[in-house]
Design a protein around this nucleic acid. Structure first.
Length: 493
RNA sequence: GGUGUCGUGGCCGAGUGGCUAGGCUCAGCUCUGCAAAAGCUGCUACAGCGGUUCGAAUCCGCUCGACACCUCCA
């Protein structure tokens, strides 16, 4: 019996705007596709948040016993900078600015992306395909769409005919837009266009002579349109109809809308049962923006080498901070927010680390099985990590109360509590155990141990001038002594 | 202008038609030689105005405000 047969998972489907019970197409198997980054610069912190949300979703689905195939692409064929016909793609532009090959740009920032994600303890996806590795599949897809009459060729470029498609299909069903409204509100673009209608989008673009990234096709030497790669790669590895498609909220329109249209036009069926969108990350109440300088990249946040935050934050603290809000809410990244999360996170860790030293009783005064199910209920409700964390803090209270003797637990319940917390904190939330309190194994601990002993002797002799001197000078060196009932421990700041 | 999301206590941030998450801050207490650390206890909020209801912060309408998308962006 797998866990998913006992735990009823609900998830919010952007398509219906409601929470729905999760039913995979094939029982026990889940296919999930998430739109990955365009690797033309350092990974954006907002990107990290989005992928972290899906990392936790991936982890929880796996924990429930599903066999999950998680596909997250790398976009290494540049998208055009704008919708006009004459445009430079982002990767080519960056390559020109840095005077190196486009593929050097791709390589450099793919490595950066992986490094940052590893730092944040992400699980690797099952497949990480690249756009340039699937040009043939994209060309085949375009042929299908043309054959089915939903695309037209102009001057070596191919465009998707949105107006024709909308006559027999519902273009806009994901983003709740009406084609008529789009027609009404489309701005006039400067460059002259080969498109029949402004709402049409490119499937294939003929390359200008100076364009470096180009491939041969039946229509021209050129490059694929920017919505096509996800359709090609998702259906190649997950089939024409799969379970979950995710991405950032900003991709809902037009990117995901176009993916639906492409798939329906090419394959005659809608591609995805559950669309999931992670919301945006703001910095100090404003969207991150390079032009205003209101931006911080993951490396700067981790190193503390920035002018926005008061200090460096560890990957788990940042992860914990992000997990304290729902993936569907806008999250505001602030220094005080991170400080608060840091304190709470260490309190949680310290409680977990004292679990093994709890003294068992013959009976339990707390129902741990109920508490455990409450943790599952939180995650089953559209991956509600804030409620899960609230439950984990309930456990912190239990642990401290047992430690104080006001509540009791049997040894079986202590083990159950320990295993459950471990599962949720480390396996599902993906946090790492970083206790601030030293265990006393390395040389620093030995040295501080000597000072603690000297201080204890001074205190026993009521030589408080000496004992306070030891305490204060250690504090100045960044070592804080903590007096407890069972002796003195210390933490390094 | 259009579409969508949302406005919660000092701050962050969940959730729900009646049982009033959680974290941080703050206050009091315990512990301590004094502190710190740790723990315990306390702090009853849901933008405004109408309506539905026995009862709404939760449903509906309007107003105000924020954010996102509509143009590259996770």
């Amino acid at each position: 019996m797998q866990l998913f047969q006992q735990q009823k998972l609900y998830l919010y489907n952007s398509l219906s705007g409601k929470k729905e019970p999760f039913k995979p197409i094939n029982e026990g198997y889940v296919g999930m596709y998430v739109c990955g980054p365009t690797v033309y610069s350092n990974v954006h912190l907002g990107n990290v948040r989005t992928f972290m949300s899906f990392d936790v979703i991936f982890r929880y689905l796996k924990h429930l016993g599903y066999k999950v195939r998680y596909v997250r692409n790398i976009t290494d064929a540049g998208h055009l900078e704008n919708d006009a016909d004459a445009g430079e793609d982002k990767i080519t532009k960056k390559a020109r600015l840095e005077q190196i090959e486009p593929m050097e740009i791709v390589q450099r920032y793919t490595v950066d992306f992986h490094n940052i994600l590893n730092t944040f303890n992400f699980l690797p996806p099952s497949i990480e395909p690249t756009a340039t590795g699937h040009i043939i599949e994209q060309i085949e897809l375009i042929k299908n769409i043309i054959d089915n009459g939903f695309a037209y060729v102009v001057n070596g470029s191919v465009y998707f005919d949105v107006h024709k498609f909308n006559k027999t299909h519902d273009y806009g069903k994901l983003s709740k837009r009406k084609l008529e409204d789009l027609i009404h509100n489309t701005r006039e673009l400067d460059g002259q266009s080969d498109k029949k209608n402004p709402q049409d989008f490119a499937l294939w673009k003929k390359a200008e002579p100076q364009h470096i990234m180009r491939w041969p096709s039946p229509w021209s030497d050129g490059f694929p349109g920017w919505h096509l790669e996800c359709t090609a790669m998702s259906t190649k590895y997950l089939g024409d109809h799969f379970d979950i498609h995710g991405g950032g909220m900003d991709l809902k329109f037009p990117h995901h809308e176009c993916e639906i249209a492409q798939n329906e036009a090419a394959k005659g069926q809608t591609p995805v049962n559950y669309w999931m969108h992670a919301n945006m990350l703001e910095l100090n109440g404003q969207r991150m923006s390079k032009t205003t300088g209101n931006i911080i990249n993951p490396g700067e946040l981790l190193s503390g080498n920035n002018k926005i935050m008061s200090k460096a934050y560890s990957p788990s603290v940042i992860r914990f901070f992000m997990m304290q809000s729902s993936y569907r809410s806008v999250l505001d990244l602030t220094d005080s927010g991170l400080l608060g999360s840091e304190k709470g996170f260490y309190r949680l860790m310290d409680a977990f680390n004292t679990l093994e030293s709890l003294k068992p009783s013959t009976r339990s005064s707390i129902n741990i099985a109920d508490w455990k199910q409450a943790c599952y209920n939180a995650m089953n409700d559209d991956f509600n990590t804030p409620i899960l964390i609230a439950n984990l803090f309930e456990a912190v209270k239990y642990i401290n109360q047992v430690k104080e003797g006001s509540e009791t637990l049997t040894s079986e319940d202590i083990v159950l509590l320990q295993e459950t917390i471990h599962t949720f904190i480390f396996d599902i939330l993906g946090l790492e155990n970083v206790s601030k309190t030293e265990s006393g194994t390395d040389k620093l601990s030995a040295a501080v141990g000597v000072l603690i002993k000297l201080r204890q002797e001074a205190r026993a002799n009521k030589d408080f001038a000496m004992s306070d001197k030891i305490r204060d000078e250690l504090a100045e060196a960044g070592i804080q002594l903590k007096d407890g009932k069972d002796g003195t421990s210390f933490s390094v700041n």
